[in-house]
Amino acid sequence: MRIRELAVPGAWEFTPRLHGDERGVFTESFKASEFEKAVGRPFELLQVNMSTSAAGVLRGIHYTEDPPGQAKYVTCVRGAFLDVVVDLRRDSPTFGAWDSVLLDDVDRRSVFLAEGLGHALLSLADESTVTYLCSLEYTPEFDRDLDAFDPELGIDWPAVGRDGQPLTFVRSAKDIAAPGLRTLLRP
């Protein structure tokens, strides 16, 4: 497995080795020993989520109030997503910085993001499916959102999908109404 820390400290990209033959492909998408060696701690799994999205669906930017925070290990099992990680830790020297990784059913990469980081996914193909391994069970009172189109973040969202067709962004009412980054700077 190749492991690369992203530009946002506390986030890593995991690219597994693919073992293929006439039967298909096998890969180890998560291996605790390799994870712990790279990240410096174990991953405590408390919940697994899965979502399927049409092309253009943008979920996020979501985060969990820290503490307690929620770490995630995200893998695309079908289709393709642009996975975006944003540093939302107020005391971090990279506060507001973001990085992205293409997650798809070809390279089978995964992204780990630590507590205190925000997360967004843009589906680049119809029926794209992602799984999230989560370190905290869903707790609505800790759930928070930020506007994915906040100009202060300046996220470079792609205009076309995996098939080369233009994307029409589809967001939930909650995500559309989400505040900008400056709200995190208020006392």
Rank of each mutant, 00 (worst) to 15 (best):
R2D: 15
I3F: 02
I3N: 00
I3G: 00
R4N: 02
L6C: 09
A7S: 13
P9K: 04
G10C: 10
A11H: 08
W12G: 03
F14W: 09
F14C: 07
F14A: 10
F14S: 07
T15E: 15
R17T: 12
R17G: 00
D21Y: 14
E22T: 11
E22N: 11
R23P: 08
G24E: 09
F26W: 14
T27A: 15
T27Q: 11
F30S: 11
K31T: 11
S33W: 00
S33Q: 14
S33A: 15
E34V: 06
F35T: 12
E36L: 07
E36R: 14
K37E: 15
A38F: 07
G40N: 09
R41S: 07
P42D: 11
P42H: 05
P42V: 01
L45K: 13
L45W: 02
L45T: 06
V48I: 15
N49R: 05
M50Q: 15
T52E: 12
S53E: 05
S53K: 04
V57T: 14
L58D: 09
G60S: 05
G60P: 00
H62Y: 13
E65I: 01
E65P: 01
P67C: 06
P68S: 08
G69M: 03
Y73G: 01
T75K: 13
T75G: 01
V77T: 07
V77W: 02
V77G: 05
A80L: 05
F81P: 10
D83Y: 11
D83Q: 09
D83M: 07
V85P: 01
D87A: 01
D87H: 02
D91L: 10
D91N: 12
P93N: 05
A97M: 04
A97N: 03
A97P: 05
W98C: 07
D99Q: 11
L102H: 13
L103I: 04
V106Y: 13
R108C: 01
R108Y: 07
R109N: 08
S110I: 00
V111D: 02
V111H: 01
A114K: 02
G116M: 08
G116C: 08
G116T: 03
L117K: 13
G118R: 06
H119D: 11
H119A: 09
A120F: 00
A120N: 06
S123M: 07
A125V: 02
D126Y: 03
E127P: 00
S128N: 10
V130W: 05
T131C: 09
T131L: 15
Y132W: 12
L133A: 14
L136W: 03
L136F: 06
E137F: 05
Y138N: 02
P140R: 09
P140E: 10
F142G: 01
F142E: 14
D143H: 09
D143V: 04
D145W: 00
L146V: 15
P151V: 12
E152R: 11
L153H: 11
G154P: 03
D156P: 00
D156Q: 13
W157F: 11
P158M: 06
A159Y: 00
A159H: 10
R162T: 00
D163V: 12
D163Q: 09
Q165N: 12
V170L: 13
R171S: 09
S172G: 12
A173L: 13
A173I: 07
I176M: 06
P179G: 14
L184P: 07
